[in-house]
Nucleic acid binder design. Structure first.
Lengths: 350, 350
DNA sequence: TTGAAAGCGATACCAG
DNA sequence: CTGGTATCGCTTTCAA
């Protein structure tokens, strides 16, 4: 192993195939055959090579190997999430990691923080790394970075939100139906004034859930009151403020539909502050840990992030295996989990 | 762009420097100079090259570039976590991602699931990718894979748990003091029978917190009762069962110290089942979302995962920048958050 | 200021 | 079965 001196450089240069070949007294090509388990190497040579590999502590250089390989693959994929620390994103991440593992593929993950230019920067970086494909929770409307990636004919699968640009697969939760079910559920308990609290209206999921809310009201013959609809609640403070405003205004709602899990939590915080948590019905979209330990236990429309992630990853690897059908939308159903908060009746509210 | 036909291969071959050079009618070295912003290229040539790059949609191949570069760096690091979907791990992850970004470095992340052979397999895979360094929540005692990595003289930083093998940096929370503080806090409220519920005793953090528990008892003059100490509660079921056993046995505790956040949650679930949540004092180690929304609100010893991650990443990059001092343990303090559950007095318990 | 040639660590192709 | 040589896409070295 050669030693470099420069500060900032890695000091040791790992052993190479050439060195293994020299030690085993065979050609480098034979070493390559042994390592790649290609047939047709005599047992004695093979053993000599393996011996040399152990002796030198040789480890195959996947990077160099991939450079020369004919299939042009790097056995890496990129994953662009809202934020790796967000529970929904990280559940997706884990499911994708597991599928990637089965395909001997490594995952580069990045957080977009809902910023289009972060998304673009990450996409370009991943393109420079020549990742084989991308799984993305898309942010931007223009998808500049993603477009360039797609031009290389590498597959992209969108997850949680669809892309609005080109033909690609999207794996989505059934936002609209889920929201509609939530609203109808509370209506069935006698609520006539059901408020909507939603995330940034520019987010596709927020918009869909809002449509589901409207649909749910329509299906139960309830009238939409614009005063009960609040959008763009992208921070906990905005949520709390909006909730409090709803209950200090005249003619308050008796039930709430919270369009996202952080919103649900903000709503609960506000209701606790107002002392109304046992009197106002609440169904949240997206489950969250401990929802069943709060009092009242929180009814939610649960998504299945692990299944979303698994499905997206499997779709991506299918594409990488040559699947050429047109891009499609795969919709994963949601499930209403009845726990208590959504079953509070209007009579509790005076 | 050449087109390959094979199923399973990526179809398009991205444009190369050579093609850019041909189009711009310059040497490939000149293209390289432009891309790497090396000085000494005439403005006209430079412009011609940039023009060709745009025209072809060229993107630099970082992988090939790194292969030839003298510093032997790949601008990637590996991150081995318990589970990317676990909130503590994912908070670490996010902090590390941010530091890596500042160093134009990409992160390969993997989940060990507390399994030594997964850890080893991941370490070897990452070695094959020639990552520049590793940040690891260590699992195994032998660290076979990590040892081999370290033999290449690439830095490893341990986070949350130290390594027991060789000289390397570790970034740790102050588990012992945190646990001791928790016990003394409840003792100060008059508790004399404080139980310990801990994770796998083979985990360093669990052992440290247990030591802190013992220390806390000793400092307050309380006697250690082995019947109140439960180890290896690595699943929610085990936690609930252990909790219930504690309260069905004669002479139950009036206060509980839960040694990990999933344990805390299991304990709460069990206490709710027993109807004891308002009567038994509880302090958990490690904060969790919604701890302040439960009733009673849950007092915890909070770690600072973001700071742990940031510190670990900065340490790793310092090593990569040539820092050669001996490996050290960096300890991040914990903080007792008083919210209610830890301040229940023994008189509540009859 | 520019470019030709060698080489990074491996695989592909074709002889023997 | 085994090995030589060209090549992957880029940087390095050195000469023009």
């Amino acid at each position: 192993m050669t030693t470099l001196a420069d500060k900032g450089n890695l000091v040791q240069r790992p052993p190479t195939m050439k060195e293994v070949a020299a030690l085993a007294n065979v050609s480098i090509k034979t070493v390559s055959r042994v390592i790649n388990e290609e047939p047709g190497v005599s047992p004695e040579l093979s053993e000599r090579v393996l011996q040399a590999i152990r002796q030198l502590g040789y480890h195959h250089n996947t990077t160099a190997s991939n450079l020369r390989r004919a299939d042009q693959r790097t056995a890496t994929i990129g994953l662009l999430l809202d934020d790796v620390a967000n529970p929904f994103s990280s559940a997706l991440h884990r499911a994708i990691e597991d599928v990637a593992n089965q395909h001997d593929t490594l995952v580069f993950t990045g957080s977009s923080d809902f910023e289009a230019d972060r998304e673009e920067r990450m996409a370009l970086t991943l393109m420079s790394r020549r990742v084989d494909g991308l799984i993305v929770m898309p942010v931007s409307q223009s998808h500049i970075g993603l477009q360039q990636f797609k031009q290389l004919d590498r597959p992209i699968v969108f997850v949680d939100r669809p892309a609005n640009l080109y033909d690609a697969d999207s794996v989505l939760a059934d936002n609209r139906v889920g929201a509609s079910v939530a609203v109808r559920h509370m209506a069935a308990y006698g609520h006539r004034r059901i408020a909507f609290l939603g995330d940034l209206h520019t987010l596709w999921t927020a918009a869909e859930r809002h449509l589901g809310y409207i649909e749910g009201l329509a299906l139960t013959g309830l009238q939409l009151d614009p005063a009960l609809v609040r959008h763009d609640l992208h921070s906990i403070n905005l949520v709390e403020q909006a909730t409090i405003e709803l209950f200090t205004a005249p003619n308050p709602p008796s039930a709430l539909f919270a369009g996202q899990n952080l919103i649900t939590i903000g709503v609960i915080r506000a209701l606790q502050r107002l002392g109304l948590q046992q009197q106002v019905a609440l169904v949240g979209f997206d489950d969250f840990p401990l929802a069943d330990l709060l009092m009242p236990r929180v009814s939610v429309v649960a998504q299945d992030p692990a299944l979303l992630g698994k499905t997206a990853a499997e779709r991506l690897f299918a594409r990488l295996d040559g699947e050429r059908s047109p891009g499609e939308r795969i919709v994963i159903p949601t499930q209403l989990l009845i726990r208590g908060s959504g079953e509070i009746t209007p009579s509790a509210f005076t």
